[in-house]
Amino acid sequence: MTFLPLVLSLGCATALVTRPPPPEGAMTFTETAVAALAGVRVPIANAAHADYRDVAGTLRTGATIEFMLPDGPLTAGAGTEFTVGGHRFRVHEVRLEQPLARVVVLPAD
């Protein structure tokens, strides 16, 4: 029991150190910034732990972020796909970091 905090800390540290690098072509954006996706400006905001739909339309719960797309806001999480500027993009990961969350987006064309 005494060692539990130490074990947990080491586990978390190992997980952070061994996080795999983002895939080729990945773009990382920070919450409250305005991403350029296919040349279109897309504000990114409101990271949370919430419900969202993946590419298959399945309702999932997890880390989410909102893309302010030209045709309206989209709450997205890992696996969500969307089209902007005539190109398809896939959300690879949403990281609920402090002070601001980050989202990794991949081209899905």
Partner: peptide, 17 residues
Amino acid sequence: TLKAAKAAYPGRLGQKH
């Protein structure tokens, strides 16, 4: 609050902004 923000000011109101 997030739900209320999205409903009242969609695409305009962001937290920590």
